[in-house]
């Protein structure tokens, strides 16, 4: 579970990127985080993952405070950043091993997971090559695999589907559903409203640093107009906020 309470982030003492937001993302839920560019999505994800500090408020992951107990809190989640161009001169397998060692995954489990994931994402022929030689989509896949190799209880993903081919995007979405059914938490940002509509139990709409809406899609439609598409509602919400 991710619990965000009254969190604010101010840049340069002036710009409020995130303004007093609160969200509670329960176990077993897939929550989509949507909002226009610059609304505060990435800042929020960075605060949840300990990359940025909060100015006020607190964030807990499965009960561990990200500031007070960072190591335990970080062990709870796996994070897929929006830019997969990381450690380009490591080989794919070396990267997966680095992640597995950092998250203390034993040899047998990691072997099994890497083998399964490589098959699923069709990466078995690329693991021995440097990430530098991968296409954008393959880089995205290896970063996603780096998260899945330690089987986190919470998934946090920043635009995870960008650049993935249809098969891999489908596989990832299926995995998100499966882990949610197992009782894990999935929180991801996206610009693709269709994905949010089809995949998520709930959506959080952020606009200009405020949470404009948080709830199920049914609730959202009820609040606005039952016949409006998510796209139309989204435009409406972000216009009026």
């Amino acid at each position: 579970m991710i619990n965000i309470q009254n969190v604010t982030k101010v840049y340069n003492g002036k710009v409020k990127a995130v303004d007093n937001i609160s969200l509670a993302i329960e176990d077993g839920q897939i929550v989509g985080f949507i909002g226009p560019n610059g609304a505060g999505k990435t800042t929020t994800l960075k605060m949840i993952t300990g990359i940025l500090n909060t100015d006020t408020g607190n964030i807990t992951l499965n009960g561990f405070d990200i500031r007070k107990d960072p190591i335990m809190a970080k062990k709870q989640f796996g994070f897929v950043p929006d830019n997969p161009d990381i450690f380009l001169r490591l080989k794919g397998l070396e990267y997966l091993n680095l992640m597995a060692d950092i998250y203390e995954v034993d040899s047998a489990s990691r072997r099994q997971r890497i083998t399964d994931l490589a098959k699923l994402f069709e990466m078995d022929h690329a693991l021995n090559d440097k990430i530098l030689s991968y296409s954008h989509g393959m880089r995205q896949k290896i970063v996603v695999m780096g998260v899945l190799v330690h089987d986190p209880k919470i998934w946090i993903l920043d635009e995870p589907l960008t650049g993935l081919d249809p098969q891999s995007a489908f596989a990832l979405k299926e995995m998100m559903r499966k882990v949610a059914q197992e009782g894990k938490t999935v929180f991801f940002s996206t610009h693709v409203l269709e994905v949010a509509e089809k995949l998520c139990h709930k959506v959080a709409i952020i606009n200009k640093g405020h949470i404009a809406f948080f709830g199920t899609l049914e609730e959202l439609k009820k609040d606005y107009h039952p016949n409006m598409s998510l796209e139309e509602i989204f435009l409406e919400v972000t216009k009026n906020a």
Binding site: D101, H125, N128, K130
Partner: peptide, 19 residues
């Protein structure tokens, strides 16, 4: 950059995935 797109043998895979 060069890439081999070669699948690792079981032995190599096992050696390079030791914790």
């Amino acid at each position: 950059t060069s890439s081999s797109r070669r699948q690792l043998s079981n032995k190599d895979f096992s050696n390079s995935t030791r914790s």
